[in-house]
Design a protein around this nucleic acid. Structure first.
Length: 266
DNA sequence: AAGCAACCCAACCGCGAGCCT
DNA sequence: CAGGCTCGCGGTTGGGTTGCT
């Protein structure tokens, strides 16, 4: 066994031995109040001593988690917005399960929240499609179907072809904005698409350079997609319905377009 | 209305990295 | 340098909630 593992385990045992009255489970309102007041007065950090000093019968770990994921004043509650979904999907495709890294690009969201979103929503969709969440098929489905749809829902004015019943048709004159327009050079009237995305009421923090590239990539995908694919993009239905049975023909079309020859959806 | 299953999310766990003494 | 300790991360769990039969 690894030396470090031994060391870690011995520390855990020590902690257990001397702190057997440590409380676990859901936090009470009183505990929340104590922790909030203590952090407001003394600041956070040094969580083990903080827990003792505050008189909380909780581990430092538990206090830290409660503060970071719930009590912190800048934590945003509520549903993940469409823009946030786009960001999560894009960043996960880049970095994988680096939840805390992804969370840093979503102001007010915690790594735990993003992780939960991924596990409960995204993995569920992969399961529905009977493919692995890490497979190229599913990654392509995310990139070429799910994300453009999310983008369309956040910007219905953009010229993404509307879905029709039956086989798709492509706008013969795709008018998706050029990428320099998406970057918002300041010309023309009204906000650029990028500015619109980045300054949405739900996503209130300015984009750093990395996030800007992110949005650029997403829009770039959408742009090229519109020009080169025969895949229709639906309008306005909930993202979950994208995967419903009646839309499976859409996925088949996607597979054809992407020349995916595997047994996807077989 | 009751029972069951699926879903959601807060909280816990194990581990590794890094700082301090 | 070794050991103690804290912090942060990613994975997992369990209980409450919701939806379906």
């Amino acid at each position: 066994m690894d030396v470090k593992v031994k060391k870690s385990q011995s520390i855990e045992l020590q902690v257990q031995d001397c702190e057997e009255d440590i409380r676990k489970g859901p936090w009470s309102v009183e505990e929340d109040t104590i922790l909030q007041n203590y952090v407001a007065t003394h600041g956070d950090g040094r969580w083990n001593s903080l827990a003792r000093s505050a008189g909380l019968k909780r581990s430092g770990k538990s206090c830290r988690l409660r503060w970071l994921n719930y009590l912190r004043p800048d934590v945003r509650r509520g549903n993940i917005t469409l823009q946030e979904q786009i960001t999560i999907l894009e960043l996960h495709s880049r970095w994988g399960n680096r939840w805390s890294k992804i969370a840093r690009h979503l102001p007010g969201r915690t790594d735990n929240e993003i992780k939960n979103y991924w596990r409960t929503r995204v993995i569920k969709q992969a399961r529905n499609l009977k493919c692995d969440v890490d497979s190229k098929q599913f990654q392509d489905a995310l990139r070429y179907v799910w994300m453009p749809r999310l983008i369309e829902r956040t910007h219905p004015s953009l010229p993404i072809p509307s879905e029709t019943h039956g086989p798709a048709h492509v706008d013969p004159n795709p008018t998706a904005p050029a990428q320099h327009e998406l970057h918002g050079s300041g010309s023309g009237s009204g906000p650029s698409a990028l500015e619109d995305v980045s300054s949405g009421a739900e996503l209130n923090a300015p984009l750093d350079s990395d996030s800007e590239h992110l949005v650029y990539d997403v829009w770039g995908t959408c742009d090229s997609f519109n020009g080169n694919s025969t895949l229709p993009l639906g309008g306005g239905d909930l993202m979950e319905s994208l995967w419903e049975d009646e839309n499976m023909w859409l996925m088949r079309q996607l597979c054809h377009d992407l020349e995916i020859k595997d047994n996807f959806l077989a």
